[in-house]
Amino acid sequence: MKLKTSFLIGMFIVVMVLTGCEPLLVLDPKGPQGRTTANVIMISIWTMAIVVIVVFAMYFYIVRKYLASRQSKDYVPPYIEGSVKLEIIWTAIPILIVAFLSVVTVISTYKVESVPEGYEEEPLVIYASSSNWKWHFSYPEQDIETVNYLFIPTNRPIEFKLYSFGPISSFWIPQLGGQKYAMADMVNTLNLAADVPGEYSGRNANFTGEGFAQQTFNVTAMSPKEFDKWIRDIKSTAETLTEEKFDELLQPGHLGQSTYKGTHLEFSPPPENHHSKEPLKDNQEEIKNQKIIKDDLSNDEDHSNMKH
C-alpha cells in the first residue's frame, strides 16, 4: 500500500534525522538546561514512537485482514457491543504512559526553571530587553550594555531578566535552553548556562511585526578569563549610553551590534514588581540598592560573592 510505504519512509527519515548525522540545534545542547530539555525531548520521542508503532501495527493488521475484498461474499460482520475488559486495558495503559511522562515533565520543568544544578557560583545577572526589532543586553554588575550580541562566561549560571519595550517577544537561544517571553509589564527570569565555549544563535521567537524575521542576536560563550578581559576592553573603549542615545536605539528598525558603557536600567527601569502587591517604594529602593552595588563595583574588581 502506498500509504504504508510513505509512512514508513516518513518515520524512517524523522528518526534518522533526529538521531543521526547532522545534529539539530535543539538536540545539540551546549549547556545544562538545554541538555535537560533535549533529554526530555528524546524520552518523549521514544515513548511516543512505541505508541505509534503499536497503533500502526494494529491498524495495518486489522485493515488488511478485514478488507471486504479478502473475505467470502457471505461473511456477515458480527454485532459486538464492546468489551469492558479491553476498554479498561486501553484506558489504563495510556494513563500509565501519561503518568510516566508527567513525572518526567514535572521534574524537568522544575529543573529548567531554577539555577542549573551543580553550579555553586552566584549567577551573572543580565537584563535582556527587546524593542522593535532588536535586543538590548544590560550587565548591571559590569555596568555595560550591548545591542544584538551577548558575551557570556562559560560554567557560570546566567540569570536573564526579560522584558520588552514593545510587543511580546520571546527570548530564545536554542542550544542553551528553552525560551521565555519578554513583556512590557512584567520581568521574567530565565536561568541558563553554557558549559562549552562557542558561538550560538539567539532570536526572538514570538511574532512582533514587520521586522520579526531579522530580530536575532549572537551569543558568544567564553572562558571567565576572556570574559573579564572583554569587559575591561569595553570599559576603556565604548562610549557611554545616554538617555538620548537609548531613545534613538529604541526607534523601530534594525541595527547592527553596538556596545556602551553604563546601562539603560538607571533612567529607564525595568517593569519589576509592576503587578505585585508591594508598594512602589520597594521598587525604588531596589533600584537604589542596585545603584549602590554598582558604585561598589567600580571600586572593587572582585565581585564573585556579591549579593544581588
Binding site: 535543539v26 535537560t36 530539555t37 533535549a38 526530555v40 525531548i41 518523549s44 520521542i45 511516543m48 501519561v98 511522562l101 518526567v104 515533565t105 524537568s108 520543568t109 529543573k111 529548567v112 520571546s170 530564545w172 536554542p174 535552553g177 528553552g178 525560551q179 521565555k180 521567537a205 514570538n206 511574532f207
Partner: peptide, 16 residues
C-alpha cells in the same frame, strides 16, 4: 506530537 508539546519543559523549545 501534541503530547510532546504538552510537556512544559520540552515546550520551551518547541514553542513558536
Amino acid at each position: 506530537t501534541g503530547v510532546m508539546l504538552g510537556m512544559a519543559s520540552a515546550d520551551y523549545q518547541y514553542h513558536n
